[in-house]
Nucleic acid binder design. Structure first.
Lengths: 210, 210
DNA sequence: TGTACATCAGTGAACGCGCGTTCACTGATGTAC
DNA sequence: TGTACATCAGTGAACGCGCGTTCACTGATGTAC
């Protein structure tokens, strides 16, 4: 494998990998097809053997990202079973871990302005990933007293929002992002407090005196 | 005012306004100086009478955004006084309202990749805005039983993250963003649950029976 | 094993484009007398 | 009120650049006989 010379051997994947590096380094729109080609040791024109164009290359990168993401989420979910709570918390952690470990994919997926509907497979994988979080939320909901139970979709939206917010604000170097807390710590605590607010996770002492 | 003809009258601000429209419509990097100039009815070169260049124009847009943002946050905070809880909730709502009402500014501030430290005034205003949220969190903290009280900075980071996440995911049209909930509703509920988790906001019924 | 040939995966030159930026300029405005 | 002049805020042509994309091509690979 990995032959070198006139024929590259596995240019397609090499281009995706390079694209991911560039997207991570330069941001979603800083990425250029030409530079990706150059880095892969190949003429820009060669890209068109494997992709329809720039957009197509980005969306392939996003697609692979969604694949990894969905797998990680599912794995985390299953690992937490049969406890609904453990499953739920694990998917939250998996979200952050994914963003941390695959920043290029994450950006391609959520910040590149790509349309989820440009390819059917893309929509499918994205739904699979988000479905895991939703499923975990539904199971969790059953343990919440009915009167104070928000819709399960809302719970998953909240957690998704907090995950995304932590990633964007504190896991990368954006604005006044000098939080004194590690992103994991921040997210863990945030979800913990949120779950307590739902009437789950009684808390260390439950403030029983009050 | 607003003279027309060879001399524009107030080109500087007109360029900022046009830039904001473009940033909102095309995304942070889709914005081009040339198009902003054309829309303002002026040659690209004219921009250089008022700004050092593209970056400078964007950062002016962000600066104005931070100004509005800081004002809104302060106003919301004061309006909620003397109740720490009301103040805190109000700043959260103000965050979302700002993002909704000034999307161009929001993007210039948080998604344009601009460095907060490129201009001292920028850093100053940004700190002022975020300082409000932090102050509200500190006051709020005093009402939390000491044993289950997280650092105030963490509380403000959590709320900031959730606000930002809601904006990015549900207040604009990004990925599978078809949440069945309105952003306001979502944020309101999310912060409510979070605050309940902190031991504040006893909740409608407190689940007294359990 | 050796040759002929089809297929495949690259090259490299060229294109048109819009970009940010510069420059010498000129038309409009405002002020001094 | 009228004229001379400095200042200011635009023009428009030009630049070099890197981009995405196309095209006819050619070198390498693999297969049939």
């Amino acid at each position: 494998m990995a032959k070198r010379g006139y024929h590259h051997g596995n240019l397609r994947q090499a281009l995706v990998d390079t694209a991911l590096e560039l997207i991570e380094a330069r941001g979603p729109t800083g990425f250029t097809l030409s530079e990706a080609a150059k880095r892969a040791g190949v003429t820009p024109a060669a890209v068109y053997r494997h992709f329809q164009g720039r957009e197509d290359l980005i969306s392939e990168a996003a697609l692979q990202g969604y694949g990894i993401f969905a797998d990680l989420m599912e794995y985390a979910y299953e690992k937490g079973q049969p406890s609904a709570l453990a499953s739920f918390e694990a998917t939250g952690r998996a979200y952050l871990a994914f963003a941390r470990k695959y920043p290029g994919h994450y950006i391609a997926m959520f910040e590149s302005g790509i349309s989820i509907n440009s390819k059917p497979e893309l929509a499918l994988l994205a739904n699979r990933a988000m479905g895991v979080l939703e499923r975990a939320a539904i199971e969790l909901s059953r343990h919440i007293p009915a009167e104070k139970r928000p819709p399960a979709q809302m719970v998953s939206a909240h957690v998704w929002a907090m995950c995304h917010g932590v990633v964007e604000l504190f896991s990368r170097g954006s604005p006044g992002t000098h939080s004194p807390f590690a992103p994991d710590e921040l997210l863990e605590a945030g979800i913990g407090i949120y779950l307590r607010g739902l009437g789950l996770v009684p808390g260390d002492d439950e403030g029983a005196g009050s």
